[in-house]
Amino acid sequence: MIELKDVGMNYGGGTLLDGVSLALPQGSFHFLTGPSGAGKTTLLKLCYLELRPTTGQVEVFGEPAGNLDRDGVAKARRRIGVVHQDCQFLDHLPIVENIALPLVVAGRDTAAEAGNLAELLAWTGLTHRAEALPPELSGGERQRAALARAVIMSPEIIVADEPTGNVDWEMSQRLLALLLELNRMGRSVLVATHDLTLIRQAKTKVAARVLRIRNGKVEAAGADL
């Protein structure tokens, strides 16, 4: 679904990513780990086309990203569910409208999707918070709302950046369970995290591949994980 081919990336300073190749096939579960500042967020942004690589090529759904114009990028994003590192909500709209936002921008009839939306709220345990504004939510609620928004379009792949970053242990268990469930439904999942306990737990339930960024290279993590 998403493929990085010999991708290099720098922000003008030193090289951040160098000759990175990886493929995220349908139904796969990947973790991306590495120390803070290693380039996890950057790699994810390359996957959902927010950044263009300095060298090499990114392919989404079989199409080289370089061939996509701005509308093409917008349409590809509707097939990629993104949980942004800091969620990125519209703070003036209630949570339920934030979750429905991808439907609205795609011109879909939200009334027809009301059942779907209610189900998603229940699934993420946010039904009673539907009318709250994003700043009123706790960290865990925000992450679950971001996940709900990421999956409302039934994307083929879900990309989550530190989804358990600001939540307690119990909440991280719930989020992991949601991600595992999505994967069981056939979605590809890519999770960036530096939370090794989370990875270890997930590995007991799913055949996840663990990738580690080290010195600009992406490598399979060792047996310690």
Partner: peptide
């Protein structure tokens, strides 16, 4: 600008 970034993130086209 931030709102526009969020809209782009969830797949909004420029015309929208």
């Amino acid at each position: 600008a931030q709102i526009i970034g969020t809209l782009r993130l969830v797949g909004a086209r420029d015309v929208f």
